[in-house]
Design a binder for these strands. Structure first.
Length: 156
DNA sequence: CGCCTTTGACCAGCGC
DNA sequence: GCGCTGGTCAAAGGCG
C-alpha cells in the first residue's frame, strides 16, 4: 500500500515510476512522492475502478487541509489510521461520472505538509479552470508526469 | 431545494 | 481461522 509517511519507495507494489518534483511558487507542490500505474500484479481491491487507475501522491506545504485544484470534491470518509496520528480524509470527484478519488492527510513529520494522493484520471474538463487557489491542478486525462518532472514544471 | 460534511458501521484484504 | 487495518457506504444535519 502506499505508505504516505515515508517518501522513500517503501511501496514496491507496482511498476512505480518515482520522481521528485519541486515547484517553487505560492505553496505549490513541493515534492512528487510517488506515481504508479497499477497494472495487475495481483488482485487488489475488489471494488470498482482499479484497473488502469493512476495513483499519484505528492506532498504540499499548506496550512489548508484541502486544496482547491479546480475540481469539485466531495468528502465521503474520514479515518484515523494507525500509520499516522493525523486523520486521513477521503474525497471523490463530484463532477458527473468522474470516479477520481483523493486521499488527504497531514505529514507525520511536518504537520505543515499535506500528503495528497490522487487515484484515477479525470474524464472531464476542469470545472473551475482559471482560478486555481492553492495548488495547480492534477492534470486530467493522460499526463506524463515523469516526463515533466525531468524537464519542466507542468504547473503554471 | 440541492449539495456537501460528518460520523459510525460495515466489508474486504492481509498478516500472523 | 482470527484479528487488525484501511476504505467505502449510507443516513442525518447543516449551509448556501
Amino acid at each position: 500500500m502506499l505508505e504516505d509517511g515515508s517518501e522513500e519507495d517503501s511501496c514496491s507494489q507496482t511498476t512505480a515510476a518515482a520522481s521528485a518534483v519541486t515547484v517553487t511558487g505560492t505553496g505549490h507542490i513541493d515534492q512528487l512522492i510517488h506515481t504508479a500505474t497499477p497494472t495487475h500484479d495481483g488482485v487488489r481491491r475488489s471494488k470498482e475502478s482499479d484497473d488502469g487507475a493512476r495513483v499519484v501522491a505528492f506532498r504540499t506545504k499548506s496550512e489548508l487541509d484541502v486544496m482547491d485544484d479546480g475540481f469539485k470534491w466531495r468528502k465521503y470518509g474520514k479515518k484515523m489510521v494507525k500509520s499516522s496520528p493525523n486523520p486521513r480524509n477521503y474525497y471523490r470527484c463530484s463532477s458527473g461520472d468522474c470516479q477520481v478519488k483523493k486521499r488527504i492527510e497531514r505529514d507525520i513529520e511536518d504537520s505543515s505538509y499535506v500528503i495528497t494522493t490522487y487515484t484515477g484520471i479525470h474524464n472531464h474538463p476542469i470545472p473551475g479552470v482559471g482560478y486555481y487557489n492553492q495548488m495547480p491542478l492534477m492534470v486530467p486525462y493522460d499526463y506524463d508526469w515523469t516526463l515533466q518532472a525531468s524537464s519542466q514544471s507542468p504547473f503554471s
